[in-house]
Design a protein around this nucleic acid. Sequence first.
DNA 1: ATGGTTGTAAAACAA
Length: 269
Amino acid sequence: MPTKSSTQTLKVASWNINSVRARAEIVERFLTEHQPDVLCLQETKVVNDSFPEGLFRRLGYNHMMLNGQRMHHGVAIISKLPMRDEDRLDWQANGEARHIGVRLENGLRIENVYVPAGGDEPDRSVNPKFGQKLDFIQRMIDWSGRLDGSTLLLGDFNVAPLECDVWSHKQLLNVVSHTPVEVELLTALQNSHNWVDLGRRFVPAPERLYTWWSYRALDWAKSDRGRRLDHMWMSPDVATAAVGHQVIEGARSWTRPSDHAPLITEFAF
DNA sequence: ATGGTTGTAAAACAA
């Protein structure tokens, strides 16, 4: 992708923030402490007209691409670097704001996705939401197979694929996010473009690696019933540019937290 | 095994 001889570094973050307006304090803390160049958000829960742009501009993030809607869902990409608006795909064909794709000036595409959670019952005949989730991922597979160019695909995929991506493989086998049919589809998505799972490149299985802990636990850290629902995948042509990766687990303990922790990958091109 | 919490937005619904 980039052809310069000098090394160019880039720090990209992804965070399901569960309402960007409810998280003003902690998103500021995150940006101040970690200084990513690009922040991809999921579940912004705000229409574009009400997006808190001033908060981000004040912190030096002057470029924003928004795909929001009323009440639920919503994604955004916030950046210190200029970017071009590439696409906003609707893999459910129902108008839900779950994707935004941009291209940076160095040519890297960033595709930010919020896969549907899928409801409670892992059976599409009684729970249409589960079927919509499977169909959404299948349409991503069709899209991903045709993609070209250096691409970072990231976001809340709402699937924890590996046994070590959940606190108990056995107890979650029939829980939406870790069922075999979802895992099989997510694996097919990964294979469709030979995506490199950056999380597991830096924290290899079977090491513990979670990005989400339920609000319902009395003490999320003590019970540690986590799942790795959030992912960063790099196209194979530039995967070696990734030089570091972290899940900022501490953010789960900040005041009024999201139930997801932010992920950061650093690149050197 | 069930229930536990949060955000949106004004009663449930989605997660």
